[in-house]
Nucleic acid binder design. Structure first.
Lengths: 109, 109
DNA sequence: GTTTAGTACCTTGCGATACAAGGTATTCAA
DNA sequence: TTGAATACCTTGTATCGCAAGGTACTAAAC
């Protein structure tokens, strides 16, 4: 059993939450997100991120706007929609619940 | 987007950790685990649990012993092996890392 | 003008896994 | 002996992270 796979599994499902937390602060394009998550000690691959952003966009939780770059092609900056804000609030609640669960299990019920 | 699905997504990958946390306290059989996790506000289905226990057993992280029941067929009580203890320690570290990540993202980096 | 390097966005195929549904086996009481 | 309760397990489906590969645009080098 390799630890990387386990850790990867634990990150599953957290990614969506983390990305929306990021976008709550400010609009970002893909490489922004990858970099900022890396700064927060979470790795996300391109092949993971793009489909995830597309899905959140399709579900109406994110919108985007094109912005020119000083060097290179234009960038797609994603923003939280109102629905996204509401969904994020629910994710906050879910996160708190998971925190409680783990704490209970650590205490030894 | 329904909340249940969202919550389900966030639980993904946490299950393995939560089950091992449980078994760190005491040996349990399947229904024990389902009940105790439910007490800790986490839902797990039979069809999820049995394959997961089999996998952890196959990977050498869990062992089990049969115990007679006062009513009904014998039960398979799972226990953490030494390897399981070590793996759990790594999962503890991964969990701490996720905690840090979420806190950083919540602060607004 | 053409080529090359860099940046950015996206898709495809694969493996892992949660879950619903269905199946088998054992025990005990009616 | 039959039925209900308990316990263990398997199969099929959908979802998602990830590696690899592909397309498109920009700017600088030649």
């Amino acid at each position: 059993m390799n630890t990387d796979n386990t850790k990867s599994q634990m990150r599953k499902g957290m990614l969506e939450y983390c990305i929306m937390l990021l976008l709550r602060q400010q609009p970002c394009y893909a490489n922004d997100i990858i970099q900022k998550l890396q700064d927060a000690e979470m790795i996300v691959m391109e092949g993971t991120l793009y489909p995830l952003l597309s899905r959140l966009k399709r579900d109406g939780l994110l919108g985007y706007e094109w912005r020119e770059s000083t060097q290179g092609p234009p960038r797609k900056y994603y923003v939280l929609t109102d629905d996204g804000q509401q969904a994020l609030a629910q994710l906050d609640a879910s996160w708190e619940e998971i925190l409680r669960t783990v704490n209970i299990l650590k205490m030894g019920n």
